[in-house]
Write a protein that binds this DNA or RNA. Structure first.
Lengths: 208, 208
DNA sequence: CGGTTCTTTGATGGCCATCAACGCTTGTGG
DNA sequence: CCACAAGCGTTGATGGCCATCAAAGAACCG
């Protein structure tokens, strides 16, 4: 859990105070960046107000400003479907980034909302390459982008119970926390009905 | 298992001749890199021997050497499953990159094979950052990585016909060529049986 | 205690995987 | 040339998995 420097966070939406932080001085920098973040190497972020479960960080189609590093909790990346329903494209846990998919777009390709109480750091980001000129930061972002496509995606070809099993294993390995999302959200991610997720989980805890 | 088709002839390894090319001097550079590739800015590649349909470019688990830019044809990104079967994670068309998912790994996360006759350029790549120090190239690769996660993935929550419809629309928009892959490969990608793909396509051409 | 959200269990119907079979095309060898 | 094999595309019949509907516990909170 990142130590907050000030006593308390301001109550406004996006932090008005300029509280840029150099990741090289943060005790959690290793979880976020591995060993690449050292003081003054370009890894600057702004800590933003914590989100409660259900809070929306940004919506699909809203103007893109910057990606965010998840520092605690869990975020859901969402996509609106033609029929008006919403599917969950991915869950992001500490050390992973939301919004990076839209880094060279005008508007966000996906939405993002908090699954549980979540803290984030907004990456320092200027348009037109005035920032992000540091090779190290670009390499780190490319590593994030490729590692996140690494995550095992739900695939329709497997039966429901197998999809659920792969999901909880993958999430346990990445996050190491008990599942923070609802059964319905797991269903929105795996393309299963909530009831099917329940039955699969029950069946798995009987026979792992 | 590994369906070695009798009709195809096997491919030898990558081209032995050293024929490095600066993308800034290539007539196709715009399709590959947009407007970012100019002479001497670090976009160097090596053209490799064309692949026939079915030829394997690299296997999952083999040592990672470099990503490849697809310049014509179509590639399939594959993943072995626990039960020994093989699913197709993505199709890559000209202007897209294969192998980038493994850029910071020792071995390839996925395999890659040609769906149709395909030509590729191997990106110039040195380990330990002696190359890829050019900001422009890093930015371009990050753009590729994020744009490819942009591609609409198959999602189990939609009915079969809808998945097929989304797929052919997405492929038409990206590639602009008639579907080069077999119905079975479409099924491996969408998680559908070959017969279901056939029925869906038939149903779609009757009523788009 | 009412209200809300999440979880769980049961019954039913429909979609789709599976099996089986056949036509079509291409390449190969007698 | 013709027969044969192999791969691909297509169609039909059947059974099982899972979405859907319905309803009731369970946990939380004002």
């Amino acid at each position: 859990m990142p130590a907050s420097r000030g006593r308390r966070q301001p109550a406004s939406m996006t932090c008005a105070r300029s509280n840029d932080v150099d990741c090289g001085g943060c005790v959690s920098s290793r979880r976020c960046w591995g060993n690449e973040a050292t003081l003054g190497c370009g890894f600057l972020v702004k800590r933003v107000r914590p989100l409660d479960a259900g809070d929306v960080l940004f919506r699909e189609g809203s103007a893109f400003e910057a990606p965010y590093m998840v520092t605690s909790g869990c975020m859901a990346v969402t996509e609106l479907l033609a029929d008006g329903s919403e599917r969950i494209v991915a869950f992001r846990v500490p050390g992973e980034v939301v919004g990076l998919e839209s880094w060279n777009r005008e508007v966000h390709r996906f939405g993002a909302l908090a699954v549980s109480s979540t803290t984030l750091c907004r990456l320092r980001w200027h348009r037109a390459g005035t920032a992000v000129r540091h090779t190290g930061l670009l390499r780190a972002l490319l590593a994030k982008a490729t590692a996140q496509s690494d995550a095992s995606l739900p695939w329709p070809g497997l039966p429901a119970m197998e999809r659920v099993r792969v999901f909880i294993e993958d999430f346990r390995d990445r996050a190491g926390q008990p599942l923070p999302m609802t059964r319905a959200q797991i269903g929105q991610y795996l393309g299963l009905a909530e009831e099917t997720v329940v039955r699969a989980l029950k069946s798995l805890e009987r026979r792992p």
